[in-house]
Design a protein around this nucleic acid. Structure first.
Lengths: 191, 191
DNA sequence: ATATAATAGCTAATACGATTAGCTTTTGAG
DNA sequence: CTCAAAAGCTAATCGTATTAGCTATTATAT
């Protein structure tokens, strides 16, 4: 009982470590070294071993992302809200490459838990669309489109060398405008 | 020299195994078992071990995807081509969940090789846009948008339970139409 | 055909990370 | 001040990757 560690602190440390490595593949040994303890000691905090740690990392990541995008859309509506949310999401992924990878720790056995975890973040997306005049079904489609785009663009960007002839910023902006235009178009037609 | 195996066959078998597991995390042991040989024997074909196997799997996957989408767009232009390409891409991912994961074996050390590998598939996307009247820069933005959307939508779909209230097919269709509308809009304005 | 070199498999041995078992020290509650 | 839980440690076990060295098969060159 010397180091003053607890589950929370360890997870945050693990997240940092993942981001430093740029990958979610962190080992008990690496994490223990990072914390100045021996690998077996980690089992006092995570009796479920690496699996439990991964799950916690995933949950922690979604909570953080949720917080970021929530903060970003406060006081904004419609296009402003969607735009802010998208930029915040992308920034998060670029800043947390390793953690974001851990957040993809989909299904297998824990599918429900994972879904609950992203739920918060996805819910923010839904709320951001609430100021538009869309049917529920349209909102669902739109959230899926936005989610897919963000997931795809950010991962590709995070894993690709940043020396493109055409800046990625411009492409992101372009894509975002395309999507917003699509939403506007939808509203026009449903009137 | 009994089993008549060669690099090519082993890779294809590894791809099947990955898809069967729904994950790219296949071990030397699993693969050896699958092939009816002992793990050390694999090193006769892959002296670089698991790393080399992963790389080959990645390359193999991109070649396969390239072939699929190329086949899909033959004889088509504009919206028809893009639509066919998108559906083919999505089908591929859903059919090859494990292999597709292996294809994400980004950067680290081999970044250039990986880029070359996707290059073929990305090139098909560019060609599919050739029938539109777009500037080079616009094409680049568009390819990035399409790529991001496909990557994101497919991975999310591949990893999520298929029991949604609103069918994913409809959302895919909706998103695709939104993107095509965006392209049309762009052309209108640049005239 | 036959000797020979490369091939492709095998077993045994090594290394390393995950995990478990059991011991010990610190710390918080009473 | 005592005691139980908490949190760390070392030693031991297990499983997978990988290497080393052996052997049988196959292909090739004489």
């Amino acid at each position: 009982m010397r180091t003053g560690l607890d589950k929370e602190k360890i997870i945050l440390r693990a997240a940092e470590l993942a981001d430093k490595k740029g990958s979610s593949d962190i080992t008990m040994k690496e994490l223990a070294d990072e914390l100045g303890i021996k690998p077996p000691s980690l089992y006092k905090h995570f009796s479920g071993g690496l699996d439990e740690l991964s799950r916690e990392l995933m949950l922690c990541g979604w909570r953080m992302l949720d917080a970021e995008i929530t903060k970003a859309v406060i006081g904004k509506a419609k296009d402003d809200a969607v735009t802010a949310l998208c930029y915040a999401y992308r920034d998060f992924v670029l800043k947390h490459k390793g953690l974001y990878e851990a957040m993809q720790w989909y299904d297998m056995f824990q599918s429900k838990e994972h879904m609950k975890a992203c739920e918060g973040a996805v819910d923010v997306m839904y709320r951001s669309l609430s100021s538009y005049e869309l049917t529920n079904e349209q909102k669902i489609h739109t959230v899926r489109l936005v989610r897919a785009f963000l997931q795809g663009f950010s991962t590709i960007e995070a894993h690709t060398a940043h020396d493109k002839p055409v800046p990625l910023d411009d492409s992101f902006d372009f894509a975002l405008r395309t999507i917003l235009r699509g939403i506007a178009d939808m509203q026009k037609r449903s009137q």
